[in-house]
Design a binder for these strands. Structure first.
Length: 569
RNA sequence: GCGCCUGUAGCUCAGUGGAUUAGAGCAUCUGACUACGGAUCAGAAGGCCGGGGGUUCGAAUCCUCUCAGGCGCUCCA
């Protein structure tokens, strides 16, 4: 809660206490006073349904209670309040005096790029693990969505004062990558003319593997045929992983996502932590042997079935290194860990949480969110299959390539990020390629960027006319008296609380919506009111301050999303 | 069968238990400046918020049942 709300809160609280003292309100204790958002200017700047909440306790009609509370507030005694209304069922609507509105502009001018940030999360060490795609193929669209969301969440958490980092967990060990190596081997031998080879069930069939095998043949010939099969497969596996990883990293960088830490499952396995985990589980009685395997008692934690942690062949299932990995995160000192998982990992959530609980870490230490699936829809409205196991799928790079053809590389990234970010994580997302490509110019991201570019353009125009913006201290903000100007300022004032809410709720999509709303006030204002008016320089300078503020907030918001704020388009 | 997600305007989606008229974008229809950038703006039309029941002064929102769609329930990762 910011300073203004705190001040209003105190005024309301003392009014209620005064009413109780005067014997007009029969309540035993004053509850926390809630504020409700005001949707229209008629509802003032701050509204509270407190009278409705007190109705039962006080055994009075909400409207009467509101009247009593308001009676004990003297608007003239508080500079902050311009007017108080009682509306609807008993809402108390508070209109702030213009000076407090203008304070927002002073705050923005003073904080600039830092406007919107706070220190609420100070001291929190947060790690967000996201994308973490298998190193067996190019990144698909869901990974792109996860990349955009994770990257933005880190930005948001850092904005509220946390120390948050981006981490990618590479599944470079286990059965999947083994089969990956085998698939490369098959392709390699195929490329050398061996016939009758078929990619087995569970193998990787993507064309990119044929191309990769072909490259090996072209650069190194058939030398590897001399090796034993196991040796060759292991070698190809490692070569393949390194190749794919580089590719994934390049795609992510192109998408504007740079991970701080790349963790390796293989390294975790080699660290001895899995053995440590097993030891702890065993000591706590969570394990038992059956059917030749070792099982974890998931049912002790309320799940409906137990799960295998050590297979009958002596190998760990992926659960063990994953649990060890989370233990490792804990040991590294993170106070909060957030995992963004793909839609096919739902079953993993309770397992992971139970393991973490079994290792004695706090319940709320690990947060897991599913980034829901993205369905690519083609012109006919048919869904395209994006499975990595199938031959063809749509990659993040292909998406950017196709968008770039019509809107250019930078905007392609911007548009894709915006599309991925504009919906709640839990919402399934239909990505209509035709629409994204052919109607790119009608995309909401352009609307926002255009608003920013327009702001910049005003200053350019001003410069041509010899108008230099004045420092805010020398400007008469009173001249910002149009209703739309007040509406704009109120919207600008919301930004820090939107950032805070968005970060705390891990809901990145609130930022795109906010920016779109802000742009939706700016554009009409721009159309109706001329900023540069040589005949009235006082007004011009006041409006330039407003435009500067809008520009700052748009830029700060877009920056959080990893989307560019162009000065011209 | 069990679990998770989703269901809001023709389409894609926002919506924190609170306000008369449930909001945007796209699509549709009608309009706009000799103007700081028309990638803009003004307006119209479009809704039993999947359905039933419950809690409440008040429910798109909470609870419950139910219907529909998606996904997950491997000694795969």
């Amino acid at each position: 809660m910011d300073a203004i709300k705190t001040e209003v809160y105190n005024i309301l609280e003392s009014a209620i206490h005064a009413a109780v003292a005067a014997g007009e309100l029969a309540i035993s204790e004053v509850p926390t006073i809630p504020f409700s958002p005001t949707k229209t200017p008629e509802h003032g700047d701050i509204a509270t349904p407190i009278a409705l909440g007190l109705a039962k306790q006080a055994r009075m009609a909400p409207r009467n209670i509101a009247e009593i509370i308001v009676k004990h507030i003297d608007p003239d005694a508080h500079a902050i309040i311009r007017q108080i209304d009682i509306a609807g069922a008993g809402f108390i609507n508070i209109h702030l005096s213009d000076n407090y509105l203008y304070d927002t502009l002073h705050t923005i001018a003073a904080m600039q790029a830092a406007y919107g940030t706070c220190e609420k999360g100070a001291g929190k060490q947060v790690q967000i693990e996201f994308v973490s795609a298998n190193p067996t193929g190019p990144l698909n669209i869901v990974s792109g969505r996860a990349a955009a969301v994770g990257d933005t969440l880190v930005n948001l958490l850092n904005a509220i004062g946390c120390n948050a980092i981006r981490e990618f967990y590479v599944n470079d060990a286990g059965g999947q990558v083994q089969r990956f190596g085998e698939s490369i081997d098959d392709r390699y031998r195929q490329a050398l003319g061996e016939e009758g080879l078929e990619i087995p069930e569970g193998g990787y069939q993507g064309e990119y593997l044929q191309a990769f095998a072909q490259t090996i043949v072209e650069t190194e010939g058939d030398a590897y045929l001399q090796l034993e099969t196991d040796e060759r497969v292991a070698l190809f596996r490692d070569k393949g992983i390194a190749h794919i990883l580089t590719q994934q990293r390049t795609s992510l960088e192109r998408f504007g996502v740079n991970f701080d830490v790349w963790s390796s499952e293989k390294a975790i396995r080699d660290s001895g932590k899995p053995e440590e985990i097993i030891r702890v589980f065993r000591e706590n009685g969570y394990l038992y042997e059956a059917e030749g395997a070792t099982w974890f008692r998931m049912t002790d934690f309320g799940d409906d079935k137990d799960c295998v942690v050590i297979k009958s062949d002596g190998e760990y299932t992926y659960f063990v290194p994953d649990a060890a990995y989370h233990r490792d995160k804990f040991d590294r000192g993170f106070t909060t860990v957030i995992d963004l998982l793909g839609p096919d990992h739902q079953g993993h959530i309770t397992h992971l949480k139970n393991f973490v609980k079994g290792l004695g870490m706090p319940d709320d230490w690990l947060e897991i969110f599913i980034i829901q699936q993205v369905n690519l829809v083609n012109a006919e409205g048919n869904r395209l299959d994006m499975s990595k196991r199938r031959g063809q799928f749509y990659t993040l790079d292909t998406l950017i390539d196709e968008l770039a053809e019509t809107v250019g590389e930078q905007f392609a990234v911007d548009v894709a990020r915006y599309f991925f970010l504009m919906r709640a994580n839990s919402s399934h997302l239909d990505f209509n390629m035709e629409l994204a490509i052919t109607h790119a110019s009608e995309n909401p991201v352009f609307y926002i960027q255009y608003a920013h570019a327009r702001c910049c353009s005003i200053f350019e125009q001003g410069a041509e006319q010899g108008i230099t913006p004045k420092p805010i201290q020398e400007v008469s903000l009173k001249r910002l008296s149009e209703p739309m100007e007040h509406e704009l300022i109120r919207k600008l004032a919301e930004f820090p609380s939107i950032v805070l809410l968005s970060a705390e709720a891990r809901e990145a999509h609130r930022i795109p919506h906010y920016l779109h709303e802000l742009s939706g006030i700016f554009h009409p204002y721009y159309n109706q009111h001329r900023v540069l008016d040589p005949a009235d320089m006082e007004k011009t300078h006041a409006r330039l301050i407003l435009i500067q503020s809008v520009q700052s907030v748009l830029k700060n918001g877009l920056t959080l999303l990893g989307i560019s704020a162009p000065t011209s388009m």
